[in-house]
Amino acid sequence: MKSKPFPPGRPDSLDDAGEIRRNDWAAFSSLSRMENHWEIKPWPSGASNLYWYLTFGHDDFLASTARACQDALGSFPLRPVAVETLHMTLLKVGGVDAVEGAGLERVVEKAGIALESVSRFELAVGPLAGSAGAIRFSVSPWSPVLELVERLGAAQESEPGLGPVGSVENMRPHVGIAYSAARQPVAPILDRITDLRELAPVTTMVKDVKLVRLWRTDSAYEWEEMATISLV
């Protein structure tokens, strides 16, 4: 079953940072508990899939901010994301075997054509919020991110052998920093995060989009880069 988007509703503005952050925090703070991410997000043993990512491991300032938040939340049963692998998931392409069967090089080529006129853009990452299964940074603005997803999705849907792409209306851009490793009350976490929300958002430049192969171990995601498409 496909998971429902969180927050359930979109912010009133896709570009106003204050409205995006307010919407994220209102949804997270309305929860009574967090769930065990590894139980609510099943993953077939041995499976690996290809995704389009934005990656942020190059941004030392963002990495240090994420690490400070992870350290401050260290007393809770959370599994931190390695800061060198910080990322935003844009779009699932499909299982590795299916994509290779469809023609991996052709998939990348079509994506490159779809993005050839897209300019680099800045994102503000932060402050901290979360979902039922993860702690994550709000991200603003959304519009340039959603444009990437729409263009990648249109290119993908034109490729025989790959499944249909879901609606961009269901995407909620964010950068995760930790996964919930247990079913736990959210109130103590909210109290701790309230102080962490005082940390200034980090502005970072999005220069490229990466195709990655993603797999899951017992309680962590791992990925490797397969291709990079630079923005102009």
Rank of each mutant, 00 (worst) to 15 (best):
V202P: 01
L199H: 03
T194L: 12
S143E: 00
G163W: 09
V206I: 14
I177S: 14
E150V: 07
L146F: 02
Q156I: 11
K207I: 02
L190I: 09
S140K: 04
V139C: 09
S180A: 14
V209I: 13
E150T: 08
E198Q: 13
A178L: 09
P185T: 10
S140G: 03
G166Y: 04
W142V: 08
L196A: 02
P201T: 12
V165A: 03
L199G: 02
R183E: 15
L146W: 01
A178Y: 07
L190G: 01
S167L: 03
L152C: 12
V209P: 02
Q184L: 10
M171T: 07
P141E: 04
A154D: 12
P141S: 08
T194F: 08
G166R: 06
E157C: 13
E159Q: 15
Y179L: 14
V145T: 05
P144E: 02
L199N: 06
A182R: 08
P185K: 06
V168W: 00
P173Y: 12
M205G: 00
V149A: 14
L199F: 03
E150F: 00
V202Q: 12
L162V: 13
K207T: 11
P141M: 09
L196M: 10
S138R: 00
E169I: 00
L196K: 00
A181M: 02
I189V: 14
M205A: 05
I177L: 10
L211D: 13
R197C: 05
V165H: 01
P201S: 10
V206N: 08
S138D: 08
W142L: 07
V202K: 02
R183L: 08
R183G: 11
A182H: 02
K210F: 11
S167W: 02
M171K: 09
L148C: 05
G161Y: 04
W142D: 06
S180V: 13
V186D: 11
N170F: 04
E150R: 15
A187F: 12
E157G: 14
D191T: 05
L211G: 11
A181E: 12
G153R: 14
M171Y: 03
S180D: 11
A181T: 11
A154C: 04
K210S: 15
G166Q: 05
R151S: 07
G163Q: 15
L190M: 12
V145K: 04
W142K: 10
R197Q: 11
E198K: 13
K210T: 15
S180L: 06
R183F: 03
R183Y: 03
S167G: 11
I189C: 03
A187N: 10
G153N: 14
S140C: 05
D195A: 11
L190Y: 03
G176R: 04
G161V: 09
V165K: 06
E147V: 09
V165D: 03
A200M: 03
A187H: 07
K207C: 02
T203P: 02
A182T: 08
A181Y: 04
L152Y: 01
